[in-house]
Design a binder for these strands. Structure first.
Lengths: 147, 147
DNA sequence: CCCCTAAGTTCGGAAACCGAACCCTAACTG
DNA sequence: CAGTTAGGGTTCGGTTTCCGAACTTAGGGG
C-alpha cells in the first residue's frame, strides 16, 4: 500500500490497484468468489505458504473485504466470507475473466462456467456511457486531470 | 506466473489474475492508460525501482500487452505503447476505479475525471445478463465447475 | 572535448516469500 | 482417561525478489 505515491497518484484507481496488485490477492479473491471460506481450503487450493495466507487474509479482513466469522464443526472455528464491499469486487473479476477468455484461453477452454441463476443467460461485462448508452473503449474516453 | 497451480486452477480467470496480481503490474497499466509511454516517465511517476520496471515492461511486452516502438528524439529511443490486447484491459481498470470510488474514496475525491469524448457522458461498468439484460451481482450467478 | 539525455544494467543490503516443523485446544476413540 | 485428530494458525532458516544508488552506452550540442 505504501507503493502508492502520495502526489497526484493517490486516486480511486491507484488505491485499489495497489491493494489488489499485491501478490496473491487477486487469486485469493477469485477463490473466495468460488466459494472457498476456510483457511485450509484456501491453502490447499492455491498452494500459497501458510504464513503469507495468514497475512493476506488479515489485510482483507481489516480492509473490510472479508470478515472472519465463527462456525461450528462441533467446535468453534473461523471462516472467511466476503462482505458487501468484497462482493462488490465482482465486476473486476468478471472483467478479468472476460479478458482472459479472449486473450489467454488455455486451448482447452475454461474450467468453469457462469450463468444467470434466473434465466440461465451468459454473463457479460460492459463499459458504457451513462448518457448515450454506447459501449466505450479506452479510446472513446477523455481523461481530465484535476487540480 | 508459476503461482498458478496446474490442477483445475488453470482457468481464464486465474491466468490474468496471476499476471496482474504481480507487484506493480496494475499500477503500471494504469499509468499506461493515463498516457505514459517512456521509461523515465514510468519510473518517476510510479517511484518503482529501475530494475523492476525494466522487468515488468519486458513481461508486458512479451505478453503482448505493450509493444516497444522506436521514436525519434533526434536519436533513436524506445517507448512503450498499449497493444489491442492491452487496451482491452480497460474494463478491468474501470471496474477497479468504480469500486475505488465507492469504497476507497480518499475524502478529497479522485484526481482525474473520465468522460465520453462524443457526448460528454459519464463512464460506467456493468455486469449484465446477455439474455435478459438484467444487472448481475455475485449472488445472481451460478458457477458450474467443468470436468 | 566535455557534458547531457534516455534507457537500461549492476550490485550489495533489505524485505517478502517459501516449506517444513511446531503449537494449541476441543473433541472423538479405544 | 490417555492418545489421536483437525482446524487454524505461528516460527524459523534459507531463497527470491525488491530497493536505491551508482554505473554504462551512445548520439548530439555547446
Amino acid at each position: 500500500m505504501s507503493r502508492v505515491k502520495v502526489v497526484d497518484e493517490l486516486c480511486t484507481l491507484s488505491l485499489p490497484a495497489a491493494l489488489l496488485g499485491e501478490r496473491w490477492t487477486l487469486l485469493l479473491l477469485r477463490q473466495a468468489f468460488l466459494g472457498t471460506r476456510r483457511f485450509e481450503d484456501f491453502q490447499s487450493a492455491m498452494d500459497i505458504s501458510r504464513s503469507v495466507l495468514t497475512e493476506r487474509l488479515a489485510t482483507f479482513v481489516d480492509e473490510g473485504i472479508l470478515r472472519r466469522v465463527p462456525y461450528k464443526d462441533s467446535r468453534t472455528r473461523y471462516e472467511y466470507r466476503l462482505t458487501e464491499k468484497g462482493l462488490d469486487l465482482y465486476p473486476v473479476l468478471m472483467a478479468l475473466r472476460k479478458w482472459g477468455d479472449k486473450w489467454m484461453a488455455p486451448a482447452d477452454g475454461t474450467s468453469f462456467d457462469l450463468h444467470h441463476k434466473d434465466c440461465g443467460g451468459d454473463v457479460d461485462v460492459r463499459v458504457e456511457c451513462t448518457t448515450c448508452g454506447e459501449d466505450l473503449g479506452a479510446r472513446d474516453v477523455r481523461v481530465t486531470r484535476l487540480r
